[in-house]
Design a protein around this nucleic acid. Structure first.
Lengths: 339, 339
DNA sequence: CTGTTAGCGCTTTCAC
DNA sequence: GTGAAAGCGCTAACAG
């Protein structure tokens, strides 16, 4: 292992000069800077992370914690996790992965031992164990997702409220007056995941405001047939669907509707909302207001790095506005019953 | 921040006694051990990771590197990544996540700065850039997957050869004499992923040995219809299929066969092989010889930790035997053409 | 069984 | 513009 001592000797300068020449934290004459750099190169020198961390009192590492329940969409979570790691690198941080049962305990451990400088929390529940921890920890935490009590926390998320409102209004503008929400299954809700609740609440509220006939369906199977049957039983003359459910429900929606003699968008219009597309498959053929890691994670990291490096105060809640992707799955409403 | 000094003072012992009492690395009288532990508890003491790492010359951190191409199955990769992290914790290691373009460069950086003690490489290509690095690095690397040149490397993977052989032999035992392999798409092969090559090679070889009529299909679309059409064109009287393709192809195989009037297992028997199930959906209804992270990752971590802690020599290649999961998708062959 | 002490390799005052 | 030196907080000889 070559150390800063070796480089200092090779370059004929002191170790502090090497340190400063390499970090650029104070002005060094062009000449010695070059000498130091060449010496470092020659000796293949790289500063030892642990030594640097001990002296500088920060590690250039953040942690990402994701509990990952059995029912969480692993593809979406991988997308978020990777995006966090990729964005962290842009700020020169590495990313420690704290998963499953270690998501909470690991968060505590990493903070207590000062293993990491900050934390990004993914997969946030309404009543998330990590919120309590975050409030008492000495290192900053940014939540990607909204717990129900956000006081004293820094959070970033898609503006689900607005996404739902935009979706409903779009359907209304096309003449639809009977709209169903195909939401997540009840296990997810029971577990305390917050965003489905927010979506359902926003949906009910907007439908009430606009006097739209509506129903919220929680599929009982990974196949959309059950959801479609439930919906058409509850609301037989549905002409608009807002889809905010698991990937498998979404993928089987078209065949399930076809089985009832309904085609999209001729008989029924569909808008997907608050859902993360799977990059390895082609997107579902529906207009969409996606929950996109590319929108939220960069913001989360800017915030976190700011919190770490400028010791700002936590407490920001940033709701990212949704983006509308048109895939021609919305058409003017027709009254199927008069045909 | 409370330090080991504070604890030593509080407990009325020296700092080395605190260190040893807490690490258990030498015998300490029951009495003082208790005093130290209580003092640590009272002061809420946790050893600073960077200081420990600098003094002890290891960090208790490993890295997992996964390039993650646009076509990689994110769900499967998340499963592997998480399993590595979970297993690492069992050995008391934390896991650093090196993804995408940083998978290679990050690996170099993490090793050079001694940020991590060892590395697990996922998503291994036939001619993987990381193999060269691994051979010259001072910290151990374990590959989960097989590159084409494994000399000097430590690797763990499913025994794809045997999986394919078992699948073929099972079909043969049921009387099938015409078998198709629905493999991965050509992009994946072109990119250099190794396991599809291994699978196709094993398939061809075993079919030749057993004088079975066979065909290898690389689907050109994420839907199985194309693959089924290709297969039935090439090999019209196929009665057995070995499925080793993307999740979307697998999920649409049943409808695609149905569209040709074929049902499983009545008309055609199907065995899935070398494929990672998605935990958030129910498994495909086919007999399967899965590529299961639970089988390979624990072995990889045992190996890696052994390499780190007992400075053993690299060079082990461990092929995990496949497990057969019966879902009744194999039935005795019938000659469709005589019906 | 316990204490003393010399580092681990770097950053960062403080002094020139 | 550069150097000397004091730590950062811990581990692990070495000594008793």
């Amino acid at each position: 292992m070559t150390t800063i001592q070796d480089v200092a000797r090779e370059a004929g300068v002191s170790i502090s000069t090497v340190s400063y020449a390499l970090s650029g934290k104070r002005t060094i004459s062009e000449n010695t800077r070059k000498r130091v750099e060449e010496a470092a190169q020659r000796l293949n020198y790289f500063p030892r992370a642990a030594a640097r961390a001990l002296a500088a009192r920060h590690n250039e590492i953040i942690a990402v914690t994701t509990p990952v329940h059995s029912d969480t969409d692993r593809s979406a979570h991988m997308a978020f996790t990777m995006k966090v790691a990729t964005e962290a690198r842009k700020h020169n941080y590495d990313t420690l992965l704290l998963v499953q049962d270690d998501a909470v305990e690991g968060m505590r451990r990493a903070a207590e031992t000062a293993l990491v400088d900050g934390i990004v929390a993914l997969d946030v529940d309404a009543d998330d164990e990590r919120t309590g921890l975050a409030r008492t920890m000495k290192i900053p935490v940014v939540f990607v997702g909204l717990p129900s009590d956000t006081s004293g926390l820094t959070c970033v998320d898609l503006d689900f409220d607005q996404a739902i409102r935009v979706a409903i209004d779009r359907l209304i503008a096309a003449g639809h007056r009977t709209i169903g929400l195909i939401s997540h299954n009840e296990e997810l809700l029971k577990r305390g995941a917050n965003f489905p609740l927010r979506i359902e609440h926003a949906f009910r509220q907007r439908c009430a405001e606009t006097h739209i006939a509506s129903a919220v369906i929680n599929p009982r199977s990974p196949d959309a047939h059950d959801a479609v049957n439930q919906l058409l039983t509850t609301l037989p003359n549905t002409t608009g669907i807002i889809l905010s459910s698991s990937h498998s429900v979404g993928a089987s929606l078209l065949p399930a509707l076809a089985a009832r003699g309904l085609s999209v968008p001729h008989d029924i219009s569909v808008i997907e909302a608050g859902t993360t597309p799977d990059a390895s498959t082609s997107p579902l053929p529906f207009d969409s207001l996606p929950l996109d890691p590319n929108q939220t994670c960069p913001v989360a990291l800017d915030l976190l790095v700011d919190l770490i490096e400028h010791q700002r105060k936590p407490g920001d809640i940033i709701l990212v506005p949704p983006r509308y992707e048109d895939r021609h799955s919305v058409a003017p409403a027709t009254d199927r019953h008069t045909i």
